[in-house]
């Protein structure tokens, strides 16, 4: 039956309490940091969920017939619908133009009478080379990689693009000398 509860020295009482609060705060901050980090990770993972890995779209590489089928100065529109590509043969060779307008992605029409591609959405105009000359389009049409396969057919690879404003039309693959 101890009737006396001897008062502990004040210094000793303060010390452990302070340390407790300090460790409590460091635990709290650790908890908050890990909570925030895990929320960020969950957010990133959910965002990643929205980017599919497999696409149900036509393949990027396709064969486009024999180069002799193309006539000089005529825009070949056979692959416009199926593959979004125009084939153009000029004096020196062949190039594959993307049918996607560089403004907002509409499909321009080839107006042979006026010798230009004209976009119906916002009126951008491109020469037969793909260079933009009127309307809001900020840059020329893109070209796709073009090559000859072993069987003598043209092969277009839409996975490789060439942009004129970056000087890429001079690179090998942008133009097939023929």
């Amino acid at each position: 039956m101890s009737k006396v509860n001897p008062p502990r020295p004040a210094a000793k009482r303060g010390e452990p309490a302070d340390a407790g609060r300090r460790s409590f705060f460091s635990w709290m901050s650790l908890a908050w940091v890990s909570f925030t980090a895990s929320m960020l990770a969950a957010g990133t993972a959910t965002a990643r969920f929205m980017f599919p890995n497999v696409l149900f779209e036509p393949p990027l590489t396709f064969r486009a017939g024999r180069p002799e089928e193309l006539q000089v100065g005529i825009v070949d529109e056979r692959f416009k619908d199926s593959n979004q590509v125009w084939l153009v043969r000029d004096g020196g060779g062949i190039y594959a133009l993307s049918t996607t307008c560089t403004h907002l992605g509409c499909t321009p029409n080839w107006l042979s009478a006026e010798q230009k591609f004209k976009c119906p959405c916002h009126g951008s105009g491109f020469y037969i080379t793909g260079i933009n000359f009127e309307g809001p389009a900020p840059r020329p049409l893109e070209r796709f990689a073009i090559d000859l396969a072993d069987d003598g057919q043209l092969v277009i690879d839409k996975g490789r693009k060439f942009q004129q404003e970056k000087g890429q039309w001079e690179l090998p693959g942008a133009y097939l000398e023929f």
Binding site: A47, M50, F51, P52, L55, F56, E57
Partner: peptide, 18 residues
Amino acid sequence: STSDARFALLGGTRVGEM
């Protein structure tokens, strides 16, 4: 074109099934 904002919106590179 397969990892940008538009791709996430459309679930593809063009306005299609996804």
